[in-house]
Amino acid sequence: MTRTPYWAAFTDGIRRTMAAPAELAVRIGFFAVILVVFSSLWRAATQANGGVIQGYGYRELLWYVIAAEGCVIATKPRLIEEIGDDIGNGDIAIDMLRPVSVVSFRMAAEMGEAVVRLVCALSLGAVFGLLSVSAPPSLEGLLAALPAALLAVGCNLTMQYSFAAAAFWVEDAKSTWFLYQKLIFLLGGMLLPLELLPESLAGIARLLPFWTTAYVPARLLSGHAEWQLLIVQLGWLIVLVAAALAAFRAGEKRLVVTGG
């Protein structure tokens, strides 16, 4: 295990992120701002609503925000654009010269980078949460949320790779990062818990993969020990990995044909 190139890529990703503390600090600083904003918003909103909105009190909402925002901020926001650029200018072809799977290798490296940011963000979030309210509402939920956070980042990465693969066929595919981000905002439950959406919209969101990236860990951390959500994440992760691998395999063939 320790000797595979993918593990090397993963640890290299960790090292790379730690070697750029300024960049990391900016990201985590921004996360802190988001926490201030959303904790203020939800405090005011719950006060105005008699303390509880759709089953969420201020304490639940705060931990919800910490998990949802933390998991999203840990992944590179413009990954789709970056991969799209690499495909567009042919840099990806250089990776293809190595005797490893391009997608797996790159995803391992991204995962390494994301893990560092995730740990930093969640630690800061934990301190913030403990200081402004109290511990997460349920221990079981907390225990479930930890693997869910990792799975959320994994799902997010693989989904971005699946989206980005479109760049093999469509020139402007890289611009979809923006729309992807918005889908995560709304259908992924990043801005609002899915329970706060109108029922029809929430129903659609539960059928799509986006909710695995933010809603699932957030729902768990906000005190709802719904273990079956982890199975949903795992299922989607398998589907998404398969989709990304298949899309890149097809795309690489096309690149070889047209790229010469």
Binding site: L41, A44, A45, A48, N49, I53, Q54, S175, F178, L179, K182, F185, L186, L191, L192, L196, L197, P198, L201
Partner: peptide, 24 residues
Amino acid sequence: IMLANDLVWVLFWILFFERVSTVR
């Protein structure tokens, strides 16, 4: 893309105020 982005935010606020009447 920017217009779509802005529409998502408007949608967010509309959904938000479906559940919350007024905030301060």
